[in-house]
């Protein structure tokens, strides 16, 4: 029996493949409307105001009982800082990237760290470390393939992912985009690590077999993710890799990146992917929509099903939906704790 741990100790133990007092419950994106309103957050200020952002994210930990505190709220910071057009969404809609570059040479990241949204991420990490020292402070970052896709446009990424496998010239082009993305990733990762982030959560949503060829993922995606992952480890930071959609065809590649933890969607069978991933912890798989409209029974069933399938932490298959309710989030955390009492 492991003695009671803090949230931070619990998450770090899971990532380091050590025993835990109960399975951690962690999240990716966390822009929950109920918590924004409860904490007095104002749209869109909470995207650029560290205090507001940490107050919103902090309620996921202090009220719902989630073991990590995650910022920023969405996958747009990198693009916005690079000068791409971003629609800021609404209180219940995350910002989204609306434009892209024509050539990799157009991407200028000299003053990346000077951008107010990037600065806000860094300040939020520092503030969250002060306010919630017992929680795993997590930076939510865009991984290299997805960032390359944001830079060149998602449809272009998809098309190039097959063309680059057929023609050397297209492969060169693809490598140029990914190289630029990796440079930006490294600048941002270093700043987040210096600010004290315990965990860097990389979402490589566009590396999904739903958007790019699995062969492309193995040829380009794995090495790019490994490069940023190794860089994180050199900085002394643990990192988690999330890819959307049915990742069964690429889970072996994901496991080979050196990620400390893999996060998967509900489209995969947890039992199947945990077997393929071997000793790399896999998390996720719980349907996010359950936090909006799921019954208590549905939430408990899905939470237990993922853990029975070998998940090392309970996590939703994607970000926590903005319309999630605090009572459902608490039901989810309790379901994971109850499972732990019976099974650990």
């Amino acid at each position: 029996m492991v003695t009671e741990m803090t949230s931070l100790e619990r998450v770090l133990a899971m990532l380091n493949r050590k025993p835990v007092d109960r399975v951690p419950v962690i999240t990716g994106s966390t822009m929950v409307k109920e918590y924004i309103e409860k904490s007095g957050g104002v749209w869109p200020d909470y995207h650029s105001n560290a205090e507001m952002m940490v107050d919103v994210a902090g309620l996921m930990h202090t009220d719902a009982g989630i073991d990590n505190v995650v910022m920023p709220f969405g996958m747009f910071i990198e693009s916005l800082a690079l000068g791409l057009e971003v629609k800021m969404g609404k209180i219940d809609i995350q910002p989204s990237v609306r434009s892209f570059f024509k050539k990799p040479e157009e991407v200028n990241y000299d003053n990346f760290l000077e951008d107010k949204f990037v600065k806000n991420t860094i300040n939020s990490i520092k503030l969250a470390k002060e306010k919630y020292p017992d929680a795993a402070v997590t930076a939510f970052l865009v991984a290299p393939v997805t960032l390359a896709g944001d830079l060149m446009g998602a449809e272009n990424l998809s098309v190039l992912s097959i063309k680059c496998l057929q023609k050397e010239k297209q492969m060169e082009k693809m490598k140029e985009w990914v190289a630029v993305a990796l440079e930006i990733n490294k600048i941002y990762a270093e700043a987040c690590a210096e600010a004290g982030a315990d965990l860097l959560y990389y979402s490589d949503a566009s590396a999904s077999p739903n958007l790019v060829m699995p062969d492309f993922y193995y040829e380009i995606g794995v090495s790019a993710e490994k490069e940023i992952g190794d860089f994180c480890h050199k900085l002394g930071c643990l990192w988690q890799l999330h890819i959307c959609g049915d990742t069964t065809p690429i889970i072996e590649g994901m496991a080979s990146t050196g990620a400390d933890c893999l996060s998967v969607e509900q489209a995969v069978k947890m039992e199947e992917v945990t077997k393929i991933a071997g000793d790399v912890p896999v998390v996720g798989n719980v349907t996010p929509l359950l936090m909006v409209e799921g019954t208590e029974e549905q939430i408990i069933t899905e939470t237990r099903m993922a853990l029975d399938g070998g998940a090392k932490a309970s996590m939703l298959g994607c970000g926590t939906p903005p319309h999630s309710t605090s009572d459902r989030l608490k039901t989810w955390v309790k379901a994971a704790a109850d499972w732990s009492v019976e099974n650990l």
């Binding site: 998809s158 098309v159 992912s161 097959i162 958007l211 790019v212 060829m213 492309f216």
Partner: peptide, 11 residues
Amino acid sequence: AFVPQLLIAST
């Protein structure tokens, strides 16, 4: 088949 194949076929 995968989405990229649909996209290039569409083009």
